[in-house]
Amino acid sequence: MVSDKDVEHIAQLADIGITKDDLREFTVQFNAILDYFDILDGVTGEEQGEDSLCNVLREDDGTPSLPQEDVLGNAGSTEDGFIRAPRVM
């Protein structure tokens, strides 16, 4: 069982705003969905790595990339070729 408080806490962790109405609805829905997820308790077996897979890595060489102007083109706020972000503190 998850409570309103749990959902509010998760919303905070995920930086997702949540209204009071949303909170009530999400909590009811989450409990129904998580009840269904309980079926996974019946799954047997151990988690194993996939033998047939291997990492494909490239050399860390510099290659031409997008022009700075294009990269900054979608940012809302830029300054001197940098992207401005909200304050951390």
Partner: peptide
């Protein structure tokens, strides 16, 4: 998680503290 209005998407309010700023952008 990358949709926070900084590199793309709606203009994030850079005057707000980051959690608050991201929360508002993602809620809207």
């Amino acid at each position: 998680a990358r949709f926070d209005g900084v590199r793309y998407g709606p203009d994030v309010d850079v005057k707000k503290v980051w959690h608050e700023a991201y929360r508002d952008v993602r809620m809207a």
